[in-house]
Design a protein around this nucleic acid. Structure first.
Lengths: 334, 334
DNA sequence: CTGTTAGCGCATTCAG
DNA sequence: CTGAATGCGCTAACAG
């Protein structure tokens, strides 16, 4: 049974109100009393109950990180991890806690995630990996609960977003390849239920066209952001278009799948076929040849999301969209 | 302002007591009343406040996941991620929530982590990545707060642990190499502030000796569980002992570093030098050549930790140590 | 500057 | 079977 504010009050010979005020830094408490209270609280190792405080303030200073498809064996989360760090770090700085919510866990699917949030009285949520066709998407966007979604450009009265400039990123990649002399550049995209896929496709297309290279739909393969999908996409494109000298992948994981195929097929990278990925997950630097890719500032995305959310919650800022600029990282595959 | 139990009571024409009992499944409430209350609660979309409930029950049904060195750019966490999933999944099944605590964040270093836990009134904690020389280790072990540590074999009245059988795992690896005909087998270990390092070294040694191969300390290099450390360790060992035909690494990340060196040095794997890692992170299957390694059941470790902790918290089980058996996964590097 | 009074939303005695 | 009263630990008017 932890020591409560009453224990401190008793020990200090004052009322609990005074203790509360002294500890919360209110100015209307005598300097000597404050010192004494602080000292006694310290001696007693008093820790104010966040629970009790939450009940009265109606704020938990806790935000939820809602991840769909957080599950065993899902490697895509390597992308998410740095975002999580960014969120966690910034929230800690701001004095908030983070609770992890897997939106696919059975217990939590029985009730809506929003219901879960109101049960826990979360102050806000950050949502990641939501598919465009997920009905929950509109729930969260329209909900009165402050929220920030990652990588889905939607703004409402209570919902902001953070994303990378995916059009720009894709352009960086393709322009880089064009600069290297490539003219027949394939594109292995992710599934269309991710908003970023559309942008990356657009960037790919626009970069080509702005260099006078016609966009050819048959050079685009829609995979699913997995290693295996990337491998397959690369194989299909190369089989159909042997003249292709470079492939741009909408994720590093897919690019790595592509590299697998190229190695098996005995194709030299980058000499016979250049490869550029997207994300710059740690893996990109570890595989060999090291992957040229488009770096998303994932940590910053997380930190920005946290910051924006807290700003909204505290009424200091309006919901908005924030887009971070990715950058080209040239390594060995191009 | 969410709907409270009073709103439900009023709407149902009963007292809040009755509502509370009906919702919590107490048997002492009339069947028709219960039905009516349930229906009305549903209509009103009532969600009981976890905060208020926590205040009165003195239980938050929230546990903390304390991670040291959770930070930007730390790739080792790929190992931790599956453990996190296991924890999260099992806790969700058991009706508990997980709050992520980075024990290196400045704000939280100002106060002891245990103080943080009492502030938040956490019901228990799971701790990972604690170094043996971290003073906090004893704090958590001796603390009255129920806890489970990962990969440190310490048991107290309130603290249990979960780990892999690292001696056995290392033996699996070395026996496998010996079975392949290797006699001069190097070992790149992790730093000695991880309990697992000692066990893996012991397993390495015992496996050798039980096959009549003398243990040679000069074949052991103590690195730090990083890619770069593994690369360096591999290089040093090979330079000093060109006759070495196999290297066992205490982690996959280090093994991958070793592979980098071997590739640069033009050493064929596994023909000229076999490599075995430890962990079986997803990476092991993605790099090429694919890494032979010792699989730790990371998801199960997390799930077990969660289960054990909840058992302790609910007074159903005593703190204990649980050791999971790893298994050999043969791929291309051996 | 300090204490008294009221709740925050809920679970739980104890009476009816 | 149901309700009135009590308190979990804390903050916030409102008085003095």
């Amino acid at each position: 049974m932890p020591v409560t504010i009453r224990d401190v009050a008793r020990a200090a010979g004052v009322s609990i109100t005074t203790v509360s005020r002294a500890l919360n830094g209110h100015k209307d408490v005598g300097e000597k009393t404050r010192q004494r209270i602080l000292r006694i609280a310290e001696e007693l190792n008093y820790r104010p109950s966040a629970v009790a405080r939450s009940l009265v303030t109606q704020k938990t200073r806790t935000i939820g990180f809602l991840v769909s498809d957080l599950s065993k064996g899902r490697i895509w989360h390597y992308f998410m991890l740095q975002i999580l760090y960014g969120i966690q770090d910034r929230l800690a700085e701001l004095g908030y806690d983070l609770i992890l919510v897997n939106t696919t866990t059975t217990r939590q699917r029985e009730i809506s995630y929003l219901d879960f949030c109101t049960e826990r009285r979360l102050d806000g949520v950050i949502v990641i990996n939501l598919r465009l066709d997920d009905p929950y998407l509109h729930e969260v966007v329209e909900s009165p609960l402050p929220s920030v979604v990652i990588d889905i450009p939607l703004v409402s009265a209570t919902c902001g977003y953070v994303t990378s400039d995916n059009v720009y990123g894709a352009k960086l990649a393709v322009r880089h390849l064009i600069g290297k002399g490539h003219r027949t550049i394939g594109f292995v995209n992710g599934h269309s239920q991710a908003a970023v896929s559309h942008d990356r496709l657009r960037g790919y297309r626009e970069a080509l066209e702005s260099h006078g290279i016609p966009f050819r739909p048959e050079l685009v393969y829609e995979a699913d952001y997995t290693v295996e999908g990337g491998r397959k996409g690369c194989e299909l494109l190369r089989t159909a278009h042997p003249e292709m000298t470079a492939v741009f992948f909408a994720s590093d994981l897919m690019a790595i799948g592509g590299l697998h195929h190229l190695r098996e097929a005995g194709v030299k990278v980058p000499e016979e076929c250049a490869v550029v990925g997207f994300d710059d997950i740690e893996l990109a630097e570890i595989v060999s040849p090291q992957l040229t890719t488009i770096r998303q500032k994932r940590y910053e995305m997380g930190a920005t999301a946290a910051e924006m959310l807290v700003g909204m919650m505290e009424g200091k800022t309006m919901p908005e969209g924030r887009t971070l600029l990715p950058e080209l990282v040239v390594r060995q595959t191009s």
